[in-house]
């Protein structure tokens, strides 16, 4: 039987440590691999100034490089150090949609997401990432406090 895969929706902020620790612990116990995903919020329908349009490609490269070195690489290293097979990925777009899509295309067994941010006013009005995933995730989703 092939190894199970867990997708981790990883923000990389201070609160994400417990999420990653929990995902690593579960993966170790189940013998599963982790796919750690960091989504850079981006809408193709937002508005930019001419200067921002000109600089967008360069900014995107910087953002991806920073996300890789500061967020994804340390997380993958931490998981690997704990003996878990781990891969990383960065994507631009809407977090909820992308995590659900990745879980579907990679035939993941589970999604792990942090609860962080769900107390903000915006999250209460428009819905937070964990609430969004709870509604559309194609696989069981664990919300880590």
């Amino acid at each position: 039987m092939s190894q199970e895969l867990f997708v981790v929706a990883y923000e990389g902020d201070d609160d994400s440590g417990s999420l990653l620790d929990y995902a690593i612990a579960r993966a170790t116990k189940e013998g599963a691999a982790l796919h750690i995903v960091h989504v850079l919020e981006w809408s193709p329908y937002s508005f930019l100034t001419p200067q921002e349009v000109e600089e967008r490609h360069a900014r995107r490269k910087e953002e991806l490089a920073r996300a890789k070195s500061a967020i994804i690489d340390p997380a993958v290293e931490k998981a690997s150090a704990a003996g878990v097979t781990a891969t990383g990925e960065m994507r631009y777009g809407q977090v909820v949609e992308l995590i659900a899509e990745i879980a579907r295309t990679k035939s993941a067994a589970m999604i792990f997401v942090g609860r962080s941010g769900s107390n903000s006013v915006a999250a209460r009005v428009f819905g937070s990432v964990p609430l969004g995933l709870a509604q559309i995730a194609p696989v069981p989703t664990v919300i880590v406090p």
Partner: peptide
């Protein structure tokens, strides 16, 4: 639009920026 190009300036954004001028 190729999904791999997400994060680059979209056609919509280019049009909106030019229109705002």
């Amino acid at each position: 639009s190729d999904p791999d190009d997400a994060g680059e300036v979209s056609h919509f954004q280019a049009l909106a920026t030019a229109l705002s001028g």
